[in-house]
Design a protein around this nucleic acid. Structure first.
Lengths: 297, 297
DNA sequence: ATGGGTCGATAGATAAACTCTATCAATATT
DNA sequence: AATATTGATAGAGTTTATCTATCGACCCAT
């Protein structure tokens, strides 16, 4: 029964019988039969079909909600029992927005010291995708902005606040300054994240607010790519202080605080709002709470 | 998978493989195999056996907790989907303490007017049994004392307060009084509920508190039996005002308020503390909230 | 001790279910 | 109109589930 509910979850995120089946490790007829069996048991059509997937019926949407809950609980149960026997083992699946990736190590390192048998899978995703993955039980926790997007049925632990820096070569324009304003930054050609990233949208808003415009010379969804360009000394970028510090400054590259306005965004750990949490997730939340005071600033 | 969890629930309440199997509608080997399969999947022993059931292991107790939740959720899901399609249908299983039985009709009658397709099963049970049945998902709601027993993971809606009356023939001693005290009641030979009923224990306490002793001439677990004896005019009893009124007074039988102390016990509706409730249960809670103000006093 | 009774595990046969491959009909896409 | 994609269906093979019958361990009475 529970595996049939997993079919529903897979169908919800893949919106395609074939791919959903593949994700569940079964063939498409098997998944179709499973969905049909659920429909028979409930006595209601759950999925609108017209030779292709056309979303869920109202009843199907309710079943989907319940499936999230029941499947989640059954996984949590397994994990909890396993922890009772073997201590904390298994895999912690985490997704973080690119600008937060650099601080993930601050969470995983002490975590691993306490629970050496837990393995990690960490995805780099947009803030919206992080919440999606959480909803679909594809990750155990996310690290993202906690203020802007409407958070659904999740709990959050604030971790730190983002302060922005202009990364630029020391001999470039503004390169010798101790602080710069957003208005000044708006004059510089920048390397920025792609617009599907919330960080980019925040920076766009700040630039526009300072009377400038966002016309980045180069866009990417990879922080490493942005940074490697800045390292050449011929490009500039705007990054949160945390990641700028982590990536390390050379003698030629400077990270100049941007003031006026001194923008801050809160980044936090987000986990499904369910009691009790899986032991693996609970341990991460504990770690986040421990870490938050040190990071804050 | 979920049906295996139902095996665990049945085993928890029957404490016997054979009876649990019967309760699940399967044979004993089937239930044994189901439990073993769960144990294999979890990789842990769940049940202590020594040629007979000896309770759950610590892991088994955790699984039991989860089973309550997961099985409950899956039933709620089915019911909710069914309600979406056919309106409120199905069976509302209710258990009430004997002294509250008379007021159940005040709940079921308006309920039935709004939801004519819901059927009722109503058990008369002790207050402890009511909570047990709730825990084991054998009933949807209970009506019992809400103050005395420690209530577990349940929500409650207060319904009314019990005031006690001496039921006695008009020509018996005290029969002509407008009020009596507990001390006086203690002098009368009474018909009372059996001591496993909390109502009896409360009355015992009150009698003892008034310097008397509880030596009922007749005990029964049936209010009808008690009342039929009182109706002969040769017996007396102590009952809550609600039930005395409902049973109806004849010209020869009087229900005399007992004062000093004017004892009151709150009776309420108890339902499993789970969000969301089954539609059938939610409707009952709504009815209870609507009814409570009228009943109070 | 010994024998009847109870309880849960086990074996083997049967029935039910599940899942696969192959294919079809309906709809999109070009 | 030709082709590709999508999900449903048919049929075979396998797995899983359930039953009946029986066994061994334990309990309790004699």
């Amino acid at each position: 029964m529970i595996d049939k509910l997993e079919f529903i979850l897979a169908l919800a995120r893949e919106k395609h019988f074939g791919r959903a089946a593949e994700a569940c490790g079964v063939t498409q007829p098997t998944l179709s039969a499973g969905v049909k069996q659920l429909e028979d048991q409930m006595g209601v059509l759950l999925v609108n079909r017209g030779s292709r997937f056309q979303g869920f019926t109202p009843e199907g949407q309710r079943v989907l909600e319940w499936a999230r809950r029941i499947v989640g609980d059954s996984r949590t149960m397994r994990e909890e029992i396993n922890s009772l026997k073997h201590g904390l083992t298994g895999r912690l699946r985490l997704a973080a927005i690119p600008t937060a990736l650099a601080m993930v190590a601050a969470l995983t390192t002490p975590y691993r010291e306490k629970h050496p048998n837990v393995q990690f899978t960490i995805y780099s995703r947009t803030s919206i995708e992080v919440l999606d993955l959480l909803d679909n039980l594809e990750i155990d926790a996310g690290i993202t902005y906690v203020e802007n997007e409407p958070l659904g049925r999740v709990s959050m632990v604030p971790l730190y606040r983002e302060h922005y820096r202009l990364l630029t070569s020391a001999d470039a324009p503004l390169g010798n300054r101790d602080t710069v304003t957003w208005a000044e930054v708006a004059q510089v050609p920048l390397c920025l994240l792609t617009p599907d990233m919330q960080n980019r949208r925040i920076i766009d808003r700040l630039l526009k607010g300072a009377g400038g415009e966002s016309r980045p010379t180069l866009e990417s969804d990879s922080m490493i790519l942005l940074y490697s360009h800045v390292r050449t000394g011929r490009w500039a970028s705007v990054m949160p202080a945390k990641i700028a510090d982590t990536l390390g400054l050379t003698d030629t590259i400077r990270a100049i605080p941007i003031t006026q306005p001194k923008a801050v965004q809160t980044i936090g750990l987000v986990v499904p709002q369910r009691e009790p949490m899986t032991p693996i997730t609970a341990a991460l939340v504990a770690e986040a709470r421990r870490l938050a005071p040190q990071l804050s600033g």
